[in-house]
């Protein structure tokens, strides 16, 4: 029987290393390039008619009068106060001039008001976009490629395609196979993974610890947008004592976060980082402190690091680390309506 001469040892090691590289390439191909087969939405949660309707409360009956003088001059009928439809924030939508002289950018129209300010905390530069919307449909999200699970692109490209006035990188849902995905009233994925943030159709926003979240309850309540990255940034008005995330993510990093004040009033926070000569970023605790000091009732961390990016009227805000990264979704205000 002929015995072949074995290959040199170093060549065998090299071939194994090449094999490992090929396996990593195949893994990345399936994870990031080839779209998943389950792209159909699971459920329509919230939908809006062509014209919003308003309910008017009944005129209250005048109280019984026993005083003769009162009988001579009947009390005027109070003007009925209209009850705004859920998701209509006209009653609280501000008008008039912006009162922040330090704003680096402002925008106002009948349905949207945005004011952006720049701040610095312990070597970390961050930007706060204060947002008022008149209607819940003004709080929009968009997918890269315009469809669920259809690809990745720079947040600035997605924002540009929708002519967004203000945009912020989302939770990059496509990088994981689990996590709640609710966009513009449609449920796409209902598996729970990490802390969750839900914007309801009535304008309220709540973030939940992973163990506390109930998707059925959120759907029944009218979840309009839902994100899964986290962690939750405010716990009963305080900085949380622990966070549902890794040590690497807790450290100084670029950040993207969303804050909630009241129905119709929100803020987007973008933090520049990993640039020692300019901005080292914020830790998660510092981000929580920022959101609390801004007066947010609730706040939630979105995908940070190189993924985070904010745009305002077509311009990139700040200096995203390495120019940003292609991601799968954005939050945006103004501009065109979402395609999906």
């Amino acid at each position: 029987m002929r015995h072949k001469k074995p290959l040199p040892g170093m060549l065998v090691v090299l071939l194994d290393l090449l094999g490992i590289g090929a396996a990593l390439g195949i893994y990345a191909l399936f994870l990031f390039v080839i779209p998943s087969s389950s792209n159909a939405p699971l459920q329509d949660i919230v939908s809006f008619g062509a014209t919003p309707t308003m309910e008017v409360s009944a005129t209250p009956e005048p109280a019984a009068q026993t005083d003769d003088a009162a009988l001579a001059t009947p009390a005027a009928t109070p003007t009925p106060s209209p009850t705004p439809a859920p998701g209509d924030f006209s009653a609280t939508f501000p008008t008039g001039e912006f009162d922040d002289e330090n704003a680096i950018g402002t925008y106002a129209d009948d349905n949207l008001r945005v004011s952006i300010t720049e701040h610095e905390l312990d070597g970390g530069v961050y930007f706060v976009a204060d947002v008022w919307i008149r209607n819940i449909q003004g709080f929009k999200t968009a997918f890269a490629g315009d469809k669920y699970n259809s690809g990745y692109e720079l947040p600035s490209d997605t924002a540009s395609r929708y002519n967004a006035i203000l945009a912020l990188s989302g939770d990059c849902y496509r990088a994981r196979n689990e996590g709640i995905v609710i966009r513009n009233g449609v449920l796409y994925r209902d598996s729970r993974s990490g802390d969750v943030c839900i914007l309801y159709a009535d304008g309220t926003m709540e973030s939940y610890y992973e163990s506390e979240f109930d998707i059925d309850e959120a759907v029944a309540r009218g979840a309009y947008q839902g994100w899964s990255f986290g962690p939750k940034l405010i716990d009963n008005g305080q900085v949380p004592t622990s966070y549902n995330t890794s040590d690497a993510i807790m450290a100084h990093n670029p950040r993207a976060a969303i804050g909630y004040y009241a129905p119709g009033h929100y803020c987007l926070v973008y933090v520049d980082g990993r640039q020692p000569d300019y901005s080292k970023g914020l830790t998660m605790k510092e981000l929580s402190q920022v959101m609390i000091e801004l007066g947010c009732v609730d706040a939630y961390n979105l995908d940070g690091g190189q993924s985070s990016m904010m745009t305002f009227q077509g311009q990139v805000v700040g200096q995203p680390y390495k120019g940003g990264r292609e991601i799968s979704d954005i939050i945006y205000f103004g501009g065109d309506d979402p395609k999906a």
Binding site: D16, L17, R176, N177, E178
Partner: peptide, 30 residues
């Protein structure tokens, strides 16, 4: 050799997962 290749793959993914667990390197369907 297949076992060595798969081991190298998962050692790499484990290290990557330490830096960014949000990407689901060890928990994805792939």
């Amino acid at each position: 050799h297949l076992s060595i290749i798969f081991s190298g793959l998962f050692i790499t993914l484990t290290i990557l997962n330490q830096y960014n667990p949000g990407m689901g390197f060890l928990t994805s369907t792939v």
